[in-house]
Structures are given as structure tokens and as C-alpha cells.
Design a protein around this nucleic acid. Structure first.
Length: 410
DNA sequence: TCTGGGGTCCTAGGACCC
DNA sequence: TCTGGGGTCCTAGGACCC
């Protein structure tokens, strides 16, 4: 596409995003150790920690209980996802002033393509297009901070994967740039785990093969890498050399439109972790999960052609069972499928610590049916949606699912 | 480090069809 | 009746990301 690779791919990440939003909602949190994810000593994991909390060793992903021990003086907040979504949208609107090509990768991370934008920002005294774009990126992060009060970092490079790495190293509140031709040297000394796509499992396998840095990964022969990365080996090797794709990829499903074939993007799932549960609780939890995912499917205007049940025993063995169904978003249909899957999956006596229900192979509902012509299940579901719209989700639960909650399950 | 909840993508085997 | 091969769908599991 471009004969010379230009460093025009930008990764923009909002620093400790959830914490930053919590501080906007409650300014007394500024300058303090803040942990988002749950109440102190409660169940759950840290989803975001302020730099003050990180000084105690708190990182996202560790349990809230552990974080409570590490940083007893920290302030713990449960989280406010509605507000996070609003601020994410506003940040994106600011970013779109700088380039028309913006792809949201998550609630706090966006990729921006600046190819062809040089002339928009060039000043007469500018000799260097790279410097022009770097200045634009700095102005963009400053605008997000000035207008929303959200600190942001950015990485600018020739490929998406490298821009992400550069952005991570730029934190907090930094902008970094890797010039064309300097990609491989920049990545070479970094540990393999810094590369997107290499997680703890691959990291450990590479370490056993004596590969710790990206330079070592680049030099490793195919026979070593293939058992670890399979078909993606060539892609990982390209990324590790900083020669990865400049394509921004697709929007994440929450932000993505439906595709023209009538297949809707992504999947919808809901799961819950708990301690010991009686059989009867299990049944009603499955009902609740079905209701929840069906309500979300209806609000998105999609039906599911595939239902998945996820079950985790208390020893952490995790089992999934899925089946194909006639497309539906009616609680009763999904619940029937889930019960059949549960009976197949629950082969051990051991206590269950997690149950989840997922909807896949989503398709568009098509034109809305008139209430009188719907079948009973669909009509009930629509009525429930209307009541919830007015009085909230918990205002009503389907009588049929409450009834089924009494079904004995082992 | 005793591990949440939402996702995506890849792999691999088997069924089924032509 | 035997045969092979390719394509596609279904299902289960695993790695990874935020």
C-alpha cells in the first residue's frame, strides 16, 4: 500500500482509566492510592489501580483480598461502568478531530491511522513530516486531558503491534515515537512478554527454549517456534521484528456494526462465580443467566444460533458444552438448551464455583413482529422488556423461568 | 497469585456431503 | 460397492486481551 513504511500508526491508551474517571466523579480520590474492582476484602479482582496503589505492589488482575493486604490504606471502589462508557465515547470524539480513521480496541484503547494527515498539521517552518505528526499526537493527548481531565499516553510507529508496545512504554502521560528503520533495534532487548499476543503460557514455553528477549525470538528457528505459536508463527516473528501489519483491524464487538451478510458481530455471555451452591440455587442461577443474556440479545436486535454453557468445578476444572439451535432470543428456548447442556456437563459430584451462559452465531432479528402475531414466548419476552424499560431490570422476572428454577438438577 | 467477567481468535477432530 | 479427497459445519478447549 505504501512503498515506504511511515510511522503513522498510533496507539492511544487512557492511563489507569477507571481510576481517572473515579477521580473525576470524586475529586477527594486525587493523589491517593485507589483500587477499582470491589469493596475491601471482598470477592473479585483489581480492574484498575492508581500509581500510588501500584507502589504497594497492587496490579490489575490480582484478587481484591490480596490488594487489601498489600495496601490497607488504599481506597477501594466497586466501579461505575456507565460513567466509563460515557467518558470513553467523549475521548473518542476528541480523537476523531485528528484523524478520520479510528478503531476502538477496548473501552480505554484506540488505534489511529495518520497516513495522509501530514498536510493537515504542517506548519511552514516544518521540515519533517514525522515531527508534524508527533506534534499532532501530543496536541491530541493534551486535548483529552484539558477537556476531559483524563491523562493519556500514545505510541507512534510503523505497525499496530509496535505502536502498542511503544504506548505501553510511554506511560504515564507520555508520547513516544519509533522512527522508520529503527523498529527492530527498538524491540530487540525487550522481554518477549512485551509483545501483544505473547501471554504467560507462551512466555514460559519460550523460556524453556532459552528465549527471553525479542532478539532471541527473531533468531529462533521455525522448528522451535512452531510448536508454540502454530500457524501464527510467521506473524509473531514479523511483529517481533517490528515489521507487523499497519492494518488497524476490526472494531471490538461492543463498538462494531453488524456485517452485511446478516450475521451480527461477536457473542453475548454472562457468568457468575460463587461459593458452594445447592442444586436448587444452581437451577435458579442458570435461569437468571439466561434471562440476562436474552434481554441483552433482544436489546441488540439479535438472535442466537448457538448456546454455550460454562461450568467450573471448585478444583478449577472448566468445562464448556455448546449446541446449535434454531435462532432465538426467547428466554424459554435458551433455558431449555442450557438445561440440556448442564445435564451433559455436570458429570462430577464436586461443588460448582462458576456458571456461565453464552450466545453465539448471532443473527439480526429482521423487521419487528407485531405483538399479536408473535408466539407466546416472544410475546412474554417483549412485555418483560417493556416493563424493565420503565421500572428497571429486576422489576420483573419471567414466571416460566421462576417455575423452571424448581426443576431438580441432580 | 488460590485466580472476575467480558470478549476474540485459533486449533483440532469428527460428521457429513459431494 | 468401493474409493479418495475437499469443503464446511459442529463442538470442545485453550491462549490471550482489557
Amino acid at each position: 500500500m505504501f512503498s515506504t513504511r511511515l510511522a503513522r500508526i498510533c496507539c492511544l491508551d487512557l492511563d489507569t482509566f477507571f481510576v481517572s474517571v473515579e477521580r473525576l466523579l470524586d475529586p477527594s480520590l486525587r493523589g491517593k492510592a485507589v483500587v477499582v474492582g470491589g469493596v475491601k476484602h471482598g470477592r473479585g479482582v483489581v480492574t484498575s489501580a492508581s500509581y500510588e496503589a501500584r507502589a504497594f505492589g497492587v496490579r490489575s488482575g490480582i484478587s481484591i483480598r490480596e490488594a487489601s493486604d498489600m495496601a490497607p490504606s488504599a481506597i477501594f471502589v466497586a466501579g461505575n461502568h456507565g460513567a466509563y462508557g460515557d467518558y470513553s465515547t467523549r475521548a473518542r470524539e476528541i480523537v476523531e478531530r485528528w484523524s478520520p480513521i479510528v478503531v476502538a480496541a477496548s473501552i480505554d484503547e484506540q488505534y489511529i491511522d495518520f497516513h495522509g494527515c501530514e498536510s493537515l498539521y504542517k506548519k511552514p517552518e516544518d521540515a519533517d513530516d514525522d515531527a508534524t505528526i508527533v506534534r499532532a499526537v501530543r496536541a491530541m493527548t493534551k486535548a483529552i486531558d484539558d477537556e476531559l481531565g483524563l491523562p493519556a499516553s500514545a505510541g507512534l510507529a510503523t505497525s499496530k503491534s509496535l505502536a502498542k508496545v511503544v504506548c505501553t512504554l510511554a506511560k504515564p502521560q507520555g508520547v513516544r515515537f519509533v522512527r522508520t528503520g529503527e523498529e527492530e533495534a527498538f524491540l530487540a532487548p525487550l522481554p518477549v512478554r512485551k509483545l501483544p499476543g505473547i501471554g504467560p503460557v507462551s512466555e514460559a514455553k519460550l523460556a524453556r527454549a532459552g528465549i527471553v528477549t525479542l532478539a532471541e525470538l527473531v533468531r529462533a528457528p521455525d522448528v522451535v517456534l512452531r510448536p508454540i505459536f502454530g500457524a501464527t508463527t510467521a506473524c509473531i516473528r514479523r511483529d517481533a521484528r517490528g515489521r507487523g501489519s499497519a492494518d488497524l483491524g476490526r472494531e471490538r464487538p461492543a463498538f462494531r456494526e453488524h456485517d452485511p451478510r446478516g450475521l451480527a458481530a461477536g457473542s453475548i455471555s454472562n457468568e457468575r462465580t460463587f461459593g458452594e451452591k445447592s442444586a436448587r440455587d444452581t437451577a435458579s442461577i442458570l435461569c437468571g443467566l439466561c434471562e440476562h443474556v436474552c434481554a441483552r440479545a433482544r436489546s441488540r436486535g439479535v438472535r442466537a444460533g448457538c448456546v454455550t454453557l460454562r461450568l467450573r468445578y471448585s478444583d478449577f476444572e472448566t468445562i464448556t458444552r455448546s449446541c446449535t439451535i434454531a435462532p432465538s432470543n426467547v428466554d424459554g428456548d435458551i433455558h431449555r438448551a442450557v438445561l440440556a447442556l448442564y445435564r451433559r456437563a455436570r458429570t462430577r459430584r464436586m461443588a460448582v464455583r462458576l456458571l456461565g451462559v453464552g450466545l453465539g452465531k448471532l443473527s439480526l432479528e429482521g423487521p419487528q413482529l407485531q405483538l399479536p402475531t408473535m408466539d407466546g414466548g416472544a410475546r412474554r419476552a417483549r412485555t418483560v422488556d417493556a416493563v424493565r424499560e420503565k421500572f428497571g431490570y429486576d422489576a420483573v422476572h419471567l414466571a416460566t423461568t421462576v417455575e423452571r428454577a424448581r426443576v431438580r438438577l441432580r
